[in-house]
Simulated scan of single mutants.
Amino acid sequence: MRTTFDAEADAAYITLVSEIAPGRSVRNEIVDTAGGTVVLDFDQAGVLLGIEVIGATKLLDGEFLAGAERIDQA
């Protein structure tokens, strides 16, 4: 599992498989909440590949985000 966080976009992505090849994600389930949006990415077989969290600072625990790989820093 790998978690990335972009503070500028306030978005996190939790990858649940070793790698998501281009085109593998074919279906998305979108859940809108008061604090943001959660997008579940599935492959053709229905396997959950990853979870995108928009509004991450409101929807995820701060300690969890602190351990995420930052992708907004050069």
Rank of each mutant, 00 (worst) to 15 (best):
R2I: 08
T4L: 00
T4C: 03
T4E: 05
F5I: 06
F5T: 02
D6T: 06
A9L: 15
A9F: 03
A11H: 03
A11E: 01
A12L: 04
A12P: 14
Y13G: 09
Y13A: 00
I14A: 10
T15S: 05
L16R: 13
V17T: 15
S18H: 14
S18N: 13
E19F: 14
I20M: 04
A21N: 06
A21C: 03
R24Q: 13
S25Y: 01
S25M: 00
N28T: 02
N28M: 12
I30T: 11
V31S: 14
V31D: 05
V31I: 09
D32R: 12
T33Y: 10
T33F: 06
T37P: 01
T37N: 09
V38W: 05
V39Y: 08
L40W: 13
D41H: 10
D41K: 05
F42A: 01
D43P: 07
A45T: 15
V47W: 07
L48I: 13
L49D: 12
L49H: 00
G50R: 03
E52D: 08
I54Q: 05
I54H: 02
G55M: 04
G55P: 14
G55T: 02
G55I: 06
A56V: 07
T57H: 10
T57G: 10
K58F: 09
K58R: 13
K58V: 01
L60N: 12
F64I: 12
F64L: 15
L65Y: 03
A66C: 00
E69P: 13
E69I: 14
E69A: 11
R70I: 03
I71F: 00
I71K: 02
D72N: 03
A74K: 10
A74S: 11
